[in-house]
Simulated assay, not measured.
Amino acid sequence: MSDKFTPGPFAWPHLDETAANELWTELIEWVAWLRERYALREIRPCWFHHGSMVEELTAAMSAWKATYARTKDTHYSTGPAYWHQQVLAPMLGRFRTSAEFETCTGARCDYQEKPRPVLDDLAEFIAADIANRSTFGSRSGPDAPKPASVDVATMMGYIDQGEAEPEDPADEFSPVRWEGRRWEISDDTGDYHPVD
């Protein structure tokens, strides 16, 4: 991916004070209208305390505005029906069944957003994933970095494309010649590793 992410007006983590203030004002007004118009109990009065509810309502508002915006080409559209079926109904269903809102009542909200723990092996898992990826697409030539291992599916792709050659085509576990080296499947990892 070469395109740098440019956050839009609904990307809460990227908003500065001014943009956040504008979005809160817009969202509060829209949610008040939505709750009254549809007599919704699923959207709790304390909705703004719940980060997931804020994100979902922001997305629903964005979709609603895109659907109901006046365009010069469209007078009648299936967009409003689609919004009700594909945005509003599923969102309310999630609100109804979420354990996050069980303790919330009209007068009280005991919810406190807690950070979810990250699995202890996350950093190790990511490092292994990155190490197993081929870097040959972006750099090639004699000084291009060589991978420490190649997963079986990737090596099979190289064989199918004629870039790698098994020593014994009849044996699916046969060592493979690729990039001028001999590769064998490791019993420990199940990936191909260079042996010379």
Results as ranks from 00 to 15, higher is better:
M1N: 14
T6M: 02
T6E: 05
T6D: 01
P7N: 04
P7E: 04
P9Y: 02
P13Y: 03
P13D: 00
P13A: 01
D16G: 15
E17R: 12
E17T: 09
N21S: 15
N21W: 07
E22Q: 14
W24P: 01
W24V: 13
T25N: 02
E29Q: 12
V31T: 09
A32Q: 08
A32R: 09
R35T: 13
R35S: 14
R37H: 11
A39W: 09
R41D: 13
E42C: 07
E42P: 04
R44S: 12
P45S: 07
H49V: 00
H50S: 02
H50Q: 02
G51W: 00
M53F: 06
E56L: 13
E56D: 14
T58W: 09
T58M: 08
A59D: 13
M61S: 09
M61D: 04
W64A: 15
R70L: 12
K72D: 10
A81N: 14
A81Y: 12
W83N: 05
H84G: 05
H84Q: 10
L88C: 14
L88P: 11
P90T: 09
M91N: 10
G93F: 11
R94E: 11
R94L: 10
S98F: 10
A99T: 13
E100G: 10
C104R: 04
G106M: 05
R108E: 07
R108I: 00
C109Q: 00
E113F: 01
P115S: 09
P115V: 09
P117S: 06
V118M: 08
V118Y: 04
D120S: 08
D121P: 00
D121L: 02
L122A: 10
E124P: 00
I126L: 08
I126P: 01
I130V: 14
I130Y: 06
N132T: 11
R133L: 14
R133G: 12
R133H: 13
R133K: 15
S134Q: 10
S134H: 06
S134V: 05
S134D: 14
S138F: 03
R139G: 00
G141C: 03
D143T: 05
A144G: 01
P147M: 07
S149P: 00
T154Q: 06
T154D: 08
M155Y: 06
M155R: 09
M155A: 05
M156Q: 13
G157Y: 02
Y158R: 14
I159D: 03
I159L: 05
Q161R: 14
Q161T: 02
A164P: 04
E165Q: 08
P166L: 03
P166H: 07
E167L: 15
E167T: 09
E167M: 11
E167G: 01
E167D: 14
D168G: 06
D168L: 07
R177N: 12
R177A: 12
E179L: 08
R181F: 07
R181E: 11
R182K: 11
W183R: 07
E184C: 08
I185W: 00
D188G: 00
D188E: 12
D188S: 03
T189W: 02
T189L: 01
G190W: 06
H193P: 02
P194G: 13
V195K: 12
